[in-house]
Design a protein around this nucleic acid. Structure first.
Length: 476
DNA sequence: TGAAATGTTGGGGCG
DNA sequence: ACGCCCCAACATTTC
């Protein structure tokens, strides 16, 4: 009895809930399928770098399947129609997949499920992408949490599912047509020359092992806020595409914390994984937040300067890293060049975007989705709304980052800045955080003339801060 | 996962 | 020796 498994954000064989169930139920007669969904590939939130990473993951997944006697069947088009066709063609009696929680994904999956069921095919959806899903963690009143700290407490108090045991069952897959792995150009996506990490399940497991065994995870609490330091796991693209499961990550880190009797780094790192689940849960339970402010009264907030050309120029300066604020420019260039940005830097540039440039957070959210290899709708939306003070658990609107202070605190020697902003290589000492304060003589000495080699700050922080606080205050 | 203003405390210089 | 003042360091408050 043939079972079809659809891979989407679970591009791995180990600890994969739906795939494991498909293999066991079918006794190895499994049809592993991936569908290139044109509706997604043509959307405005596509990042060439992310698609490249995904293609790498798919290549690696196909190799893993071939090692087990199977292979990955690739198709392109409308998923529901393709899956109905494939089920008919192969006589598959059931289609399995892992649940996805964004509003668009749920609509797509509801359509797939209706189509297949009306064709007489059984459909089963599994929890896999998160440890606890949408309505598993509820308040005493039975409603979803909208504040992180109590959510985290409830999350930690609950017994966690362990990773599934690896199966070595030999797989048999019928001969059906498959696309060869397409290129970016064949998918109609712009070329990407960003330096992105290696995809695939093996790469993910190697990274996790290194993260744990080198004990970098133990130093996470102390080092994670300094973007010049390799203090984070960098596993986010793998969690995004499911080349590693959150259960595997948590179990490995917990084991290491016990073994080394070192809890701080572990607990702080796990908190970040809980943030990921928190935001998935928020979007699942409050789907309107994908399209507007979680706190609805802030949909009425007026963004921008009133001058569209000025706003566009500011937006472009931010995207390309030419705002005249070194820490912001370094971060934006890291994003453009690598498809990744350090988390502390994400907070700084998103605060700058909303509270200093006064631009609508949704523009920034979209730019991130177009750039990030790890771009995830729920985490990205949650993070932007947090920064914009429109979201769940948002920072109060009067908490505004001072880019200069953030720079001095989290990149004290300017190492991060100099790595990504070559114009500032010759700028030494404290001037690295505010090069426009150099005298004309100092500017020449540093080979960094303000207005020629590097821009003056494009906005005045105190004035912009006053303005945004006034606008928020007006809405209560 | 804030910043800045304001308040408090305590050590040390100094008359 | 003593009180006064300054000010840094830290804590609290406010937005």
């Amino acid at each position: 009895m043939q079972v079809l498994h659809i891979f989407r954000r679970d591009l791995r064989l180990s600890d994969n809930a739906a795939f494991d169930a498909a293999v066991h139920e079918s006794n190895g007669d499994v049809l592993p399928v991936f569908v290139f969904d044109d509706a997604l590939l043509r959307g405005r939130g596509v990042a060439p770098a992310r698609v490249r990473f995904m293609l790498d993951c798919l290549q690696s997944l196909d190799e893993s399947l071939r090692a087990r006697g199977s292979r990955l069947i690739l198709r392109r088009g409308d998923p529901a129609a393709i899956l109905a066709q494939l089920a008919h063609e192969t006589g598959a009696s059931a289609v399995f997949f892992n649940k996805d929680y964004t509003p668009a994904a749920r609509a797509r999956d509801a359509h797939i499920t209706r189509t297949l069921r009306s064709a007489g095919v059984r459909v089963e959806a599994f929890k896999d992408q998160v440890i606890f899903e949408e309505r598993e963690i509820l308040t005493g009143a039975g409603s979803p949490y909208t504040v992180f700290t109590p959510y985290k407490r409830a999350w930690l108090a609950r017994p966690r599912p362990l990773p599934l045991a690896d199966s070595n069952m030999v797989l048999r897959t019928p001969a059906v047509k498959s696309l060869t792995l397409p290129t970016l150009a064949e998918l109609g996506i712009a070329a990407s020359n960003q330096r992105i990490p290696r995809g695939g399940e093996r790469a993910a497991h190697e990274m996790l092992r290194e993260w744990i065994d080198s004990r970098r995870v133990n130093a996470y609490a102390d080092k994670r806020d300094f973007p010049a330091i390799e203090g984070t796991s960098r596993l986010s693209p793998h969690l995004r595409f499911g080349t590693i499961s959150p259960r595997t990550c948590v179990t490995a880190a917990e084991h290491a914390a016990t073994q080394f009797n070192q809890k701080d780094g572990f607990e702080t790192w796990i908190s970040e994984l809980i943030w990921r689940e928190f935001y998935q849960q928020v979007l699942a339970n409050f789907p309107y937040a994908a399209r507007g402010a979680f706190k609805k009264q802030y949909d009425a907030l007026r963004w921008g300067s009133g001058d569209d050309a000025l706003d566009q120029a500011r937006f472009d300066a931010w995207c390309t890293g030419h705002t005249g604020f070194p820490i912001v420019d370094a971060a934006m260039r890291q994003l453009a060049e690598t498809g990744w940005m350090h988390n502390r830097a994400r907070m700084i540039v998103s605060s700058f975007f909303t509270k200093d440039l006064l631009l609508n957070w949704q523009w920034g959210e979209r730019w991130f989705m177009q750039q990030l290899v790890d771009g995830d709708p729920a985490s990205n939306n949650g993070g932007w709304q947090w920064s914009a003070s429109t979201g769940t658990d948002a920072q109060p609107y009067f908490r505004v980052f001072n880019p200069r202070l953030q720079s001095e605190r989290f990149d004290p020697d300017g190492d991060y800045i100099r790595t990504w902003v070559p114009e500032l290589h010759g700028v030494h000492g404290k001037h690295i955080h505010a090069p426009h304060e150099m005298t004309p003589m100092e500017q020449r000495m540093a080979s960094c003339v303000i207005g020629e080699d590097y821009p003056a700050p494009i906005i005045d922080h105190p004035a912009q801060k006053d303005e945004i606080v006034r606008r928020f205050k007006a809405l209560g």
